[in-house]
C-alpha cells in the first residue's frame, strides 16, 4: 500500500494549535506519524503473532515432523524416532483404506454441501417474505447448528438405532422392514451424510437469507410487472444476484465439511469396516481411536487433508479477489 499518496489533510492538521512555522514540513511529519502508528500496530498485533507461532505454526510443524518419521509410542515420548522421508506418504497413498476414504470424503463433502445449499436456499427464499412468526421460526432453525455435536450425533444415533429407533418405527408404518442404518455397510455412509446435512442447513439458511436482503425489492417488482412468475423471478433475479454469496457459502461449507470428525465418529466410528471412514476420521482413528496410537500415519493423512483444504481455500481467495475487483470496477 502506498502510504504517502493517501489523503494528507486530517493527519497533518497540527494538534493542539501548534504554530505552523515550528512544525516540520507536512510530508515529514506524516511519515513520522505513520511510522509510529505502524509500530503501535505491531505492538498490538504482537500477542496474536506470538500466539499463531506457538499454537498454530508449532503444532503444524510437529505434525509435519511426525509424518516424515517413524514414531512409535516410545519414540513419541522420548523423541528419537527414525527419519523415514516420504515412506509414510507412500504407505498411506498405496494402502487399501486410502481409495475408500478418499471416495467417502468426496461423497460426504459434496453430497452434504449440495443438499445443505439447496435446502438452505429454498428455506431462505421461503423466509424472505415477512409473515407472522417468520422471525421466530427462522431463529428456531438455528438450533441444530448451536447444539454441541456430541448431542446431535448421539441423538441421531439413537433415532437411527436398528431395533427400536424412531426412524425404523416410522418406516414400518409404511411397510418398510428394519434397516440397520448404522451397522449395515450399505447404509452407514448415507446415515452420517443425512445427519450432517441436517447440521449444515442452518448455516446455509442464515448466510443466504442475509444475501437475499441485499437484493432490492424493486427488481422483483420490475420482474413482476414484466409478467415473470415466482419461478422465473427466482431463476432470473434471485439466483444470478445471489451468486457471490452462494459461492462463498459453498466454499466455506466445503472447507468445513472436509474436516468433520465428530459426527461420523460418534455415530459409526467410521464403520462398519471402513465404509463411513473419511480422511479426517481415518486420521483421528490412527492417532486416538484405537488402543495403539499410530501418530505418523495419522499426521500423514492429516497433512494430505490440509493440502485439499488449501486447494479449495485458494479457489475461495481467487473468487473473493475477483469479486472485489468487480465491485471496484462498478464504482464510477
Amino acid at each position: 500500500m502506498r502510504v504517502t499518496t493517501e489523503p494528507v489533510a486530517p493527519a497533518v492538521r497540527a494538534p493542539g494549535g501548534e504554530p505552523p512555522p515550528v512544525a516540520p514540513p507536512p510530508r515529514q511529519r506524516l511519515h513520522r506519524r505513520i511510522r509510529s502508528t505502524q509500530w503501535a500496530g505491531l505492538a498490538f498485533l504482537a500477542p496474536l503473532l506470538a500466539y499463531l507461532l506457538i499454537f498454530y505454526a508449532f503444532p503444524l510443524y510437529r505434525n509435519l515432523e511426525l509424518s516424515v518419521h517413524d514414531y512409535t509410542v516410545r519414540a513419541f515420548v522420548l523423541g528419537n524416532a527414525e527419519f523415514t522421508g516420504f515412506a509414510n506418504y507412500r504407505d498411506v497413498l498405496t494402502s487399501d483404506t486410502f481409495g475408500l476414504a478418499l471416495r467417502n470424503t468426496l461423497l460426504f463433502t459434496f453430497v452434504s454441501i449440495a443438499a445443505q445449499y439447496a435446502i438452505g436456499l429454498a428455506l431462505a427464499v421461503f423466509f424472505r417474505a415477512n409473515f407472522r412468526l417468520s422471525g421466530v421460526l427462522r431463529a428456531m432453525f438455528l438450533v441444530p447448528w448451536l447444539l454441541p455435536l456430541i448431542v446431535s450425533g448421539s441423538t441421531w444415533a439413537w433415532m437411527l438405532a436398528g431395533d427400536n429407533g424412531i426412524v425404523n418405527a416410522a418406516l414400518e408404518a409404511f411397510g418398510i422392514g428394519q434397516i440397520n442404518w448404522l451397522t449395515d455397510p450399505d447404509w452407514a455412509l448415507t446415515s452420517v451424510i443425512t445427519a450432517n446435512i441436517w447440521l449444515g442447513i442452518p448455516f446455509n439458511l442464515v448466510i443466504l437469507h442475509a444475501g437475499l436482503q441485499n437484493i432490492p425489492d424493486e427488481l422483483y417488482e420490475a420482474a413482476a410487472l414484466d409478467g415473470a412468475n415466482a419461478w422465473q423471478q427466482f431463476w432470473r433475479v434471485t439466483f444470478p444476484l445471489l451468486r457471490p454469496v452462494s459461492a462463498i457459502t459453498l466454499l466455506l461449507g466445503l472447507v468445513y465439511t472436509l474436516k468433520v470428525v465428530d459426527v461420523i465418529w460418534i455415530m459409526t466410528t467410521g464403520g462398519p469396516g471402513n465404509v463411513s471412514t473419511t480422511l479426517a476420521v481415518w486420521s483421528y482413528r490412527e492417532a486416538f481411536g484405537t488402543g495403539q496410537p499410530d501418530f505418523s500415519p495419522a499426521a500423514t493423512v492429516g497433512n494430505l487433508l490440509i493440502l485439499m483444504a488449501l486447494a479449495f481455500g485458494f479457489v475461495y481467495l481467487q473468487l473473493q479477489r475477483r469479486q472485489h475487483a468487480d465491485q471496484e470496477g462498478e464504482q464510477p
Binding site: 499454537f55 498454530y56 508449532f58 503444532p59 503444524l60 510443524y61 510437529r62 505434525n63 511426525l66 472447507v255 472436509l258 474436516k259 470428525v261 479426517a280 486420521s283 483421528y284 492417532a287 486416538f288 501418530f295 495419522a298 499426521a299 492429516g302 497433512n303 487433508l305 490440509i306 483444504a309 488449501l310 479449495f312 481455500g313
Partner: peptide, 12 residues
C-alpha cells in the same frame, strides 16, 4: 482451514 484433527495431533 486447518482440520482440527491435525491440530489435535500437533497439540498432543
Amino acid at each position: 482451514m486447518i482440520p482440527s484433527v491435525v491440530m489435535a495431533i500437533g497439540f498432543y
